[in-house]
Design a protein around this nucleic acid. Sequence first.
DNA 1: GCTACAATAT
DNA 2: GATATTGTAG
Length: 538
Amino acid sequence: MLRERKDKFDIVISDVNMPDMDGFKLLEHVGLEMDLPVIMMSVDGETSRVMKGVQHGACDYLLKPVRLKELRNIWQHVYRKKIHEVREIESHDSSEDIQILRSRYEDFDENKVFGGVDSVRKRKDMDNKDLADQEYGDSSAAKKARVVWTVDLHQKFVDAVNQIGFDKVGPKKILDLMNVPGLTRENVASHLQKYRLYLSRIQKQNEVRIPSRNTQSEFCPKDPAPPPPPPPPLLTQSSISTQQNSVSNRYVSTTQKIQAQGIFSDIQVDDLKSIVSVQVTDAKKGLRSDVIDTPKINSVSQLDVLVSFMPNVDYRPLEQAISKQQPLSSSIAVKQVMQYPKNNVENGGLPQGFSCLPQPNQEHKPLDHFHTAPPLISRTCTTTEREKTGITNIKPVSMDHRKTISPITCAIDSVSVHVEHGITNSQAFTMPPELTSSQRTESLYLDQPGNYGLLSSSQGSNTENGAGLVSFHDDLQFYSLQGNGCLENFGLNGMGLFEYDSMSLTEVHSNLFDAGEFDLKQFYDTTDYPPLDGCLFT
DNA sequence: GCTACAATAT
DNA sequence: GATATTGTAG
């Protein structure tokens, strides 16, 4: 029977003494052929017999008559085996598999079978000394598998949060919306706690970084920005797979576990002064940042990028244009990166002035992502400012123009400084000529809670809609950091990459702003760039 | 020993 | 549900 229906049995209970077969022989066969837990039974409680059974691989040896109390515990052997299976996969497989297995075996609710809260204490007791193993078996087997908050899972979480509204979220609601089998309210609560901590930490940093909104000093800080922190590891979970710098990898998909991918499209290389391309290469090892270097930029060390964030500008027209014409792409735009600052972020968590928390009195409007200004990255800087910031090879922008916009601006010191530090993995390269503009890609992180950032970024004085946009040089290419995007920690040092709390790099052609129109289609093929829901949250 | 994370306790 | 604490892995 066992051979014929190998997968139909969970456990074998066999008498040692059987008329046609020795119980120990059976034990051997089972062990060799089907790896089922075997419990031996016998009236003979002699130690040598019991030992023999155990040595042959029996997981238990029951003395007849078997008491009900003993039978009540035999499930543990099955449970333990299942858990071991989970662990084995856990140890060398992706967390997705774990999730699957977790849900498959969720019936084995440890708390229920172990008697709830007591199990913890019992486990502790086991650790301390004790014979508890006799009752519960290997204590490690009884340990509850930790939920791994993969990008997918976190994205579900973020989606749920956004759906509910930040001010109304609770673990239960999130759990319901997420609808993930095996996930508990406690899991969600824990994650929510971490999420909130993260957001508040980011906000604090921003408060510190930008105590005032003085335009001039912020646009090009007189004092060089402090050195960035070591780039945080991007993702520690094994679930993150590699994203190669491949034209064919333009799809951004959470199932692929690709963190993000942005697009450089329609870039006039001649106009290009500096582009930072961040590329996901190997999430386990970290990320590599590639600096696209035009002939005008001869070395990595020359690269500096000025990021101009413009939280005071109302982008509504743009947003409307986007949402009208490209719902998909606009969906991209509201995604943001969520990555926990793993390392010290005191001086580098975010570029100055970007908070991502909703203000206390601000009502959360999940769908209002676009009603605030996406900051921009520009490549512009005045000559003086360039001197001050050490930025070179960047086209100046007229001060007159900038007077109109009052942006919060900061240099991406993380880029330049990292470069200065000789980050091993950063490379300068020339845009491969074989790539068409639409094929040039850039990695980035996208995540949802950009709306928080957007909310906060909208609190500044609203200048005319898009006023700041036209102030940039005509041939300027924009790379919009949606929400409070932060170019941070470009994957140098082979470690982390961005510290975006909300970011999507969206290239925006300045002409569009000038014209008051925005045809996103010009830049994105909708089908090519599905919304990326993945978030980096590790 | 520190940090981040998730579980667990309050 | 929010927050504090604990256990654990890296």
